[in-house]
Amino acid sequence: MDNEKNKADRRRIRSHRLLKQSFEQLMREKGFTAMTIQDIADRADVHRGTFYAHFPDKFALLEQSIRDKFRHVLERQLPPDSGWHPESMRVLVRTVLEHVRSLYGRCSPVDTVDPLFERSVRHELTDLLRHWLRELQAARAGWQAPVDTMALMASWAIFGAAVEWSKGSENISVDEMTDRVLTVLTEGAKMGFHA
């Protein structure tokens, strides 16, 4: 019985991997708008029903692909002992700035892709920050805001700054923008108030 379950699990993993690989190949060849679910299934050499067993539609596959790529970028840049501390935050902010700038110019201008890209990257970023903040919270007590709220706000701050910076309206270096974002994250609203 276990052998049959392992065989099914391996088949499922293999099909998932093939669908993702086929999707990436078709993105390069045809682009997102032109490809169909049948194209993806045919390229992966699986039935259309197998596609739907893994993804509800091609937008879900695109979202998964974006999140996977962003996660791999972060894993390459961040050291294994990363957390909510100045060195990791600096690497994280700079990586997000560079990633958003590099991809924004290459993304298809389809209205549904940009929001999907933004949501995917921001969700992955929020998940990472939530993990870091939970580790930090274990060592500290008495936080006034919930971890989920703090992670969400920090991800919006980082990602929003990256989107605006990537538009190039100001001629600011990645180092200067990284410093600005870190200042906002560490100093917060208290910068604008005088006692």
Rank of each mutant, 00 (worst) to 15 (best):
K20L: 13
Q38V: 12
R71W: 05
P109Q: 11
G168A: 03
Y104W: 01
D42Q: 14
R130S: 14
E63Y: 01
I66A: 08
G83F: 12
T178V: 06
F70R: 05
A145Y: 12
H85C: 05
L26S: 00
I172T: 11
K7C: 02
A161T: 08
I40F: 02
E87I: 09
S102G: 02
F23W: 04
L19Y: 05
R28T: 07
A195L: 15
A161G: 13
T183P: 03
A53N: 15
R28C: 03
T50Y: 06
D111Q: 07
M27Y: 02
S65R: 01
E170K: 13
V93E: 09
R11P: 00
L182S: 08
L92H: 10
G160Q: 08
H123S: 14
A8G: 01
I158D: 08
H99R: 03
P86Y: 05
I158N: 08
P115M: 02
G160I: 07
Q144H: 10
A41L: 08
A60T: 09
A161F: 04
F159G: 08
S108N: 09
N3H: 04
R48W: 01
P146K: 07
R101L: 06
I172V: 15
M35C: 00
T149I: 03
D45M: 09
W143P: 00
T33A: 13
Q144R: 15
F59G: 09
T95D: 05
P86F: 09
R106V: 02
L129C: 11
G142Y: 07
I158G: 06
V93P: 10
K7I: 02
V110E: 13
R14C: 04
M1L: 11
L136T: 09
L92M: 07
D114K: 13
I40W: 00
G142P: 05
A41P: 10
R71I: 11
E87Y: 06
D2L: 08
L185G: 05
G31K: 00
S120Y: 13
H47G: 15
L78K: 00
D179V: 00
M191L: 15
L136Q: 14
A145I: 08
R17H: 15
T50H: 07
R180Q: 05
F23A: 06
R14D: 15
T33M: 09
Q25M: 10
T95M: 01
A141H: 00
K167M: 13
V91T: 14
Q21C: 03
R101P: 03
P115A: 07
L103V: 04
K30N: 05
H194F: 00
S155Q: 10
P79V: 04
R48Q: 15
D68A: 14
S22K: 00
V121W: 11
T95V: 07
L182M: 15
V96D: 11
H54D: 09
W84P: 12
R71P: 02
E24W: 01
R14F: 07
T186S: 12
A162E: 05
D111A: 11
M35L: 15
M27T: 03
L103I: 02
M177W: 01
K167Q: 15
D45C: 04
D81P: 05
D81M: 06
A41I: 12
V113R: 02
A53I: 03
A151H: 13
S65C: 08
R48M: 09
F159Y: 15
Q77L: 01
T186R: 11
F117D: 03
V163G: 04
